[in-house]
Structure formats: structure tokens, C-alpha cells
């Protein structure tokens, strides 16, 4: 009975939203309502998640588990950011500088580490994957794409060479289109499974 109730809610909401793709005008107000409620629920869900994160680290500190000092740093930063945000509001210049001047250096540096990791991966690409069609195509494409990006492969405009170059530059697009269509088919199937309650996001059946 409970499963039927939850399935009915999912199906009803889903059908109204799907109908909106076909009949936009008559369903417009209902869709607006459904969308706004969804936005509120996502926000509340986000707050619950953040609360769980804070509670986890509070427990770590109280029980003095391994890494509790890091948890203390996290919690101090969390509380400082939270209080400053509510007191100063997010529009405040100091608050914006505080958040951005921590986020940008740390996140950019983490991304920079990825560059080193990818460089290591490039060195070991063939060793780990072997000489397979996939690895050969991957490596050749990566090399040519990089050379294209660097502007090192260019032809004069209006020549046959330009057409040939365009042809090769379009080759990644072919596979990308296949990937997009495949992803869309997968999304369609998964969406239908959720709607028909044969599958649930939590893994329950």
C-alpha cells in the first residue's frame, strides 16, 4: 500500500510534467507550481545534507577520532562562514572576498594537480592499455587535438587542405554524437524506470 502511494505520487507528478512538454499553455500554471515546490524541496534537502556534514564532524571532535583536528578546522570555517553570511549578507564585499579568495586558490590548485596527474597518465597510456584500437585512436586523437588547439596545424582558407582538415576536426564530433544519443537513450530508460517505480533513486525495489 505504501509503495503504491509513493509510486502514485511519482507517476502523477511525472505525467503532469511530461504533459507540459506537449501542451505547454494549459499546463503552464501547474508546471510553475510543481517546479517551485521542487526547488524548495531541493533547498531543504541541501540544508539537511549540510547539517549531516556538520553533525558528522561534531561527532568526530567530541569522540576525538582520527583527524579530529581537521574536523575542527572544517567546523570553525563552517560556523564563521555561516555567521558572517547571515550577519553581513552574501552581497557584502568582505564576505564575497572571503569566500572567493579561499575558493579560487584552493580549487584552482586542486585542478592544477590534475594537470600533473594527466601528464603522468599520458606517459603510461600505452603501457597500461596496450596497443588496442581504442588506445591507438585515443592517443592519435589526443595528439592531433592538442596540436589543433595550439594552432600548430593550420591551412589556408578556401583550399582543399582546409576541407580535409575540417573533415578530420569533425571526427570527434561523430563519436560525440553517438555518445549523446546513447546517453539520451539511457536517460530515457532510467527516467521511465523511476516513473514506473520499477527502480528508485535509493536503490529500493
Amino acid at each position: 500500500m505504501k509503495k503504491i502511494l509513493f509510486g502514485a505520487i511519482t507517476l502523477m507528478v511525472g505525467l503532469v510534467v511530461l504533459a507540459g512538454f506537449f501542451f505547454q499553455d494549459p499546463f503552464g500554471p501547474a508546471l510553475t507550481l510543481i517546479y517551485q515546490w521542487g526547488l524548495v524541496l531541493v533547498a531543504v534537502g541541501g540544508l539537511i545534507g549540510l547539517g549531516t556534514l556538520a553533525a558528522f564532524h561534531i561527532r568526530n571532535i567530541i569522540q576525538q577520532k582520527k583527524g579530529w583536528i581537521s574536523s575542527a578546522v572544517l567546523l570553525a570555517a563552517f560556523l564563521f562562514s555561516l555567521i558572517a553570511g547571515f550577519v553581513l549578507t552574501p552581497q557584502n564585499a568582505f564576505y564575497r572576498d572571503l569566500i572567493l579568495n579561499v575558493q579560487v586558490p584552493v580549487e584552482t590548485s586542486l585542478l592544477a594537480i590534475l594537470a600533473a596527474t594527466l601528464l603522468y597518465a599520458s606517459l603510461q597510456l600505452i603501457r597500461t592499455r596496450g596497443w588496442t584500437p581504442l588506445s591507438i585512436a585515443f592517443m592519435a586523437s589526443a595528439v592531433f587535438s592538442m596540436l589543433f588547439n595550439l594552432g600548430l596545424i593550420q591551412t589556408a582558407s578556401g583550399t582543399l587542405g582546409e576541407q580535409v582538415l575540417m573533415f578530420f576536426r569533425r571526427l570527434p564530433l561523430v563519436g560525440a554524437r553517438g555518445v549523446l544519443i546513447g546517453m539520451a537513450l539511457g536517460g530515457l530508460v532510467m527516467g521511465l524506470r523511476f516513473l514506473l517505480s520499477t527502480d528508485h533513486p535509493g536503490g529500493e525495489r
Binding site: G20, G28, T32, Q36, G38, L39, V42
Partner: peptide, 30 residues
Amino acid sequence: PMASYGAYGLATGLATGETAPGLPEPTLGL
């Protein structure tokens, strides 16, 4: 908070151009 909801809300707003009659207008939202 979710790109798909934001995009859907924007597309819905663009398509219908109005909010539900009789409902409160969100200050920031649609």
C-alpha cells in the same frame, strides 16, 4: 540549486510567460 530545475523553470517561464493565477509571486525565482 539544481541546473536542470533552473533550466526547466526558465524554459517554463519563457514558454508560458506567466505564473499560476491566484498564487503568490516569488520575489526571486521564476
